[in-house]
Design a protein around this nucleic acid. Structure first.
Length: 424
RNA sequence: GUGACCGUAGCUCAAAGGUAGAGUCCCGGAUUGUGAUUCCGGUUGUUGUGGGUUCGAGUCCCAUCGGUCACCCCA
């Protein structure tokens, strides 16, 4: 035997038991997105590296050290496995001129890739649902995106997910704030750790959410972003808060919430759970009015969020709210000359009528077939032996209730099947 | 990328330097075609991998791979 091969570190198989939960989760989320008027868009997993460098920002952790990038030696292109979806989505909207007849609400789903050290709730291949409202200036659509999340948590049966909200102003306002912040940080340079010192010039806003207590002391006395906001930015934020209040969605304003990607402006938000350890953010998003222009399109305002499927599925598993996988209605046991062909026909007819039917495969004794019928979780065993075959009947044996078995003719089995399932 | 803890049967875990085990799962049987309960029987392993110390290593040491959690960062 050759050496066993393993999955790539941080890229996990989802085994059937857990996958059932994923399916239930995905159905709920997709139904919800469509009901809110968002339409599905599907982008490639691989893009030109330049797209992410320009969209996400050169000085972000993602671009600096977390991207799966390589050169395609066949044609010399620099390619990257997508670390997030917004850049691709906006690229697609520009490339196909999707906003030609007005704004668009879009959603996408799928795997994203970041080369980080795996831990609970953080993997190198992880999955997101993203929603993007393209071409809307807000704040009405800002509120819509946030409120719809609140409703989803409810549909998923999740409690205790809190909303943190902030505004980071316009690029001009942020530039002025940034200059003063850098001045303040430089004045206290001795008390900054290595990480904060490095960011001081590359990405000073990110120093704000440092967890280092000494850095936090410096940050506490730093200038306040709010003082730098102009009338329009303040009005946008006030408008959003008013709509959230009207919808009954509570929030906490977190002035240190800046988020890691460069493209954000004005509204930023995170939904956070305390039940997941260190990786508690289940959904994060914000407005990115400059991104279209930044990657070569006509300017368009936009806002979106992404939610992490691994984290949300973990919460759903904890809450135990979503339905378990569908059990078969019937398991077809067959034994004897000529029974297999007829079993196929009966199973087929039942499935065509919409029932879930598993037909035994792989041989084995009658007893072992019955064991498989039981462990499949099926409501009924349908038994087709030589006796039944001669009489053009099947034996119906209920497995989940105390009813005794009986015989049914082959003819019209599918039509009568709902009655067979019913416990009298 | 940094740190701490952990790798024994498919799964959950024992074995305190001296013969690798239990439960569960799975398979077969308990008079020929009846599951789940009960009873009987059975298979499960280069103890992650490679070195070292020792008369002797699952156990101690080193390396490596993998896992978990945290830092960092984010979904």
């Amino acid at each position: 035997m050759s050496a066993p091969l393993q999955a790539i570190r941080g890229m996990n198989d989802v085994l059937p038991e857990e996958a059932a939960l994923w399916l239930a989760f995905e159905r709920t989320v997709e139904n919800w997105l469509e009901r809110w008027g968002y339409r599905n868009i599907r982008m490639p997993l691989v893009e030109q590296t330049a797209l992410f460098r320009r969209a996400i920002g050169e000085a972000t952790d993602i671009v600096e050290k977390e991207m799966y990038s390589w050169r395609d030696e066949l044609n010399g292109e620099d390619l990257t496995l997508r670390p997030e979806g917004t850049a691709s989505c906006v690229r697609a909207a520009i490339e196909h001129n999707l906003l030609y007849d007005g704004p668009k609400r879009l959603w996408y789903a799928g795997p994203m890739y970041r080369h980080e050290r795996p831990q609970k709730g953080r993997y190198r291949q992880f999955h997101q649902y993203g929603a993007e409202a393209l071409g809307y200036p807000g704040p009405d659509v800002d509120a819509e995106l946030i409120v719809m999340c609140a409703r989803l948590w409810h549909e998923l049966g999740l409690e205790g997910i809190r909303l943190e909200l902030n505004t980071i102003g316009s690029p001009e306002e942020r530039a002025r704030y940034r200059a003063d912040l850098v001045q303040h940080l430089e004045a206290n340079a001795a008390r900054l750790d290595a990480d904060a010192t490095r960011r001081l010039h590359t990405n000073p806003l990110r120093v704000l959410d440092s967890k280092n207590p000494m850095v936090q002391e410096v940050v506490a006395r730093a200038p306040d972003m709010k003082q730098y906001l102009g009338e329009a930015s303040l009005a946008h934020f006030e408008g959003l808060k008013k709509l959230l209040a009207a919808a009954g969605v509570g929030y906490r304003i977190n002035p240190k919430l800046v988020r890691g990607l460069d493209y954000y402006n004005l509204t930023v938000f995170e939904w956070i759970s305390d039940r997941l350890g260190a990786q508690g953010t289940v959904c994060g998003g914000g407005r990115y009015d400059g991104l279209f222009e930044q990657i070569g399109g006509k300017p368009a305002p936009a806002i979106g969020f992404a939610m992490g499927c691994e984290r949300l599925v973990a919460l759903v598993a904890l809450s135990g709210c979503l339905a378990s996988p569908r059990r078969p209605d019937a398991y077809v046991v067959h034994q004897g000359e000529g029974t297999l062909e007829v079993a196929f026909a009966l199973s087929d007819a039942l499935r065509a009528a919409g029932f879930a039917v598993v037909q035994h495969a792989g041989g084995g004794s009658f007893k072992s077939q019955m064991k498989k019928a039981d462990s499949s979780g099926a409501a009924l065993a349908l038994i087709l032996g030589e006796d039944e075959l001669r009489a053009a009947e099947v034996t119906v044996k209920p497995l989940r209730d105390g009813r005794p078995q009986w015989r049914e003719p082959h003819a019209a089995l599918a039509e009568r099947f709902p009655q067979l399932l019913r416990v009298r």
